[in-house]
Nucleic acid binder design. Structure first.
Lengths: 260, 260
DNA sequence: CGCTTCTTTGACGAGCCTCAAACTGAGTGG
DNA sequence: CCACTCAGTTTGAGGCTCGTCAAAGAAGCG
């Protein structure tokens, strides 16, 4: 009896994206249909593939349908810093058309993306105010994740950092419809975690063992389980889920277009 | 014979902002006049004042005319992480209308800001395409600084980190017309530096002494001097100034409005 | 001149890294 | 079906980096 999470939903490839956007605002049927259209124009990538080159000026807007990617920079001597992980349902080149210089997006696992050009067009045309709102709301979310990560790197111990990181993943993946309150897929090597958390592989390993010994987590074959989410959150000083909606209150019914 | 840099230019309070924007795009006379108008509606702040509360939904767009501020978060136990420093010429609530939750902007020194509402209006109206372009170009710049900072925190030693940080300040202040290739004002306490760099005050002090002993820098009474900028850049693995202009090539003459 | 804030120094210990090597598991090919 | 390989995980030993605690100078300010 293997404890494997469903690897992908081949039936409705854009379901994850729809779920994610629905968290932000209620989409009309037409808008939801547009989002599901992401599955029409798919693209496959292999682990290690570069999705967006550093400093790319104008890459195609996409959503991740399955698989994980990351934004990262590699220093001259080989040291790597991962800025953020991109999960199923996350956007590429939508919140920020041009990548900042020296920050590339790489696939970490086998990956599927869906072309979001039609969705973006609809949002920008004014035909899909809900979508426009949802897309605009993605940016502050990303920004918050980035700042959270910065706090981890600058002001938290390896133990706190790792706990915080795992909680973030659990919360994000749950919104995407992957995993639940405790379990979620974790296809990262300890090296990737280290490069994100600013730790050596060896130390990541030791911290994970410590979290296991303390009965807080369980990790095996690509699946993570948070055994005591509340206690973990205490350690990490993780703030409550922090509902989004930072741009404007989506007035019921006909939502105004997002501010310029 | 004190080595003091001019504390402020009372004659033309918005000169720093004009200089900063001119780095990004050539402004028309009308646009430059608009920018200089920032000096008309000024506001003073004292060290410690909160300029923008965390999670503020819609704060007034402003430019810093003089003084330093920072974006920061404070943890429950008092630990503080400074995300970025805001220098004269930098913008507030322009690149990002709403602050991400749990990230506030505080004045670090006595501070003067200028109301940028008129400038923003002009840019958004289409009357000032150059301004629109310049304002849009501020955001990727900020983003790059943030990622640079992240690399420092995650993947550089205290020594490299501090060197990198000082070089960043020198470059930014030079663009703002404060300081030159080697000298610049540095009104930060070592505690502030530590909270930005993820180091303890004591360790910041030791690292600075080490940089001094190595003949790389000089620090006294609010002025920093980089004695060997090139060598310092090598240590920090600081990339060349990286000219900006990431959004679109500002076609000569009538520049199109920034993309939506 | 006394207060406060900031800087500096020392001593000590914990956290994290490096090096090195063994172990595991998933291919892969004979 | 069994080496063999390769990537990833795990463990140990040792040492550097950095934090903490404590206290003594400076420096600005009323």
């Amino acid at each position: 009896m293997t404890t494997r999470l469903p690897p992908r939903s081949p039936a409705r490839p854009a379901e994850t994206v729809a779920r994610r956007l629905s968290e932000l605002v209620a989409l009309s049927d037409a808008e939801a249909a547009l989002v599901r259209g992401l599955g029409e124009r798919r693209e496959r990538h292999l682990p290690g593939d570069m999705l967006v080159a550093k400093g790319a000026l104008d890459s195609r807007p996409r959503f991740i349908l399955s698989g994980w990617a990351c934004r990262q920079r590699i220093l001259a001597d080989g040291r790597r810093q991962i800025f953020s992980f991109l999960l199923p349902g996350d956007s590429i080149s939508i919140t920020r058309r041009s990548q900042p210089e020296v920050c590339a997006i790489h696939a970490l696992t086998a990956l599927e993306t869906g072309d979001a050009q039609l969705v973006v067009n609809a949002a920008e045309s004014g035909r899909a105010p809900g979508l426009a709102y949802a897309l605009a709301a993605l940016e502050p979310q990303e920004q918050t994740l980035l700042l959270d990560h910065m706090v981890r790197l600058g002001r938290q111990s390896a133990y706190e950092r790792t706990a915080h990181f795992l909680i973030e993943l659990q919360r994000r993946l749950k919104v995407a419809g992957l995993g639940d309150e405790r379990r979620f897929p974790l296809p990262l090597t300890q090296e990737m975690m280290g490069d994100a958390l600013g730790l050596s592989v060896v130390h990541v390993n030791r911290i994970l063992q410590q979290l296991r010994r303390d009965g807080l987590i369980e990790l095996r074959s690509g699946v993570a389980i948070l055994l005591q989410p509340e206690q973990l959150a205490d350690i990490a000083e993780a703030r409550p889920p922090t509902r989004s909606a930072p741009i404007a209150t989506p007035s019921a019914g006909r939502t105004g277009a997002a501010p310029a």
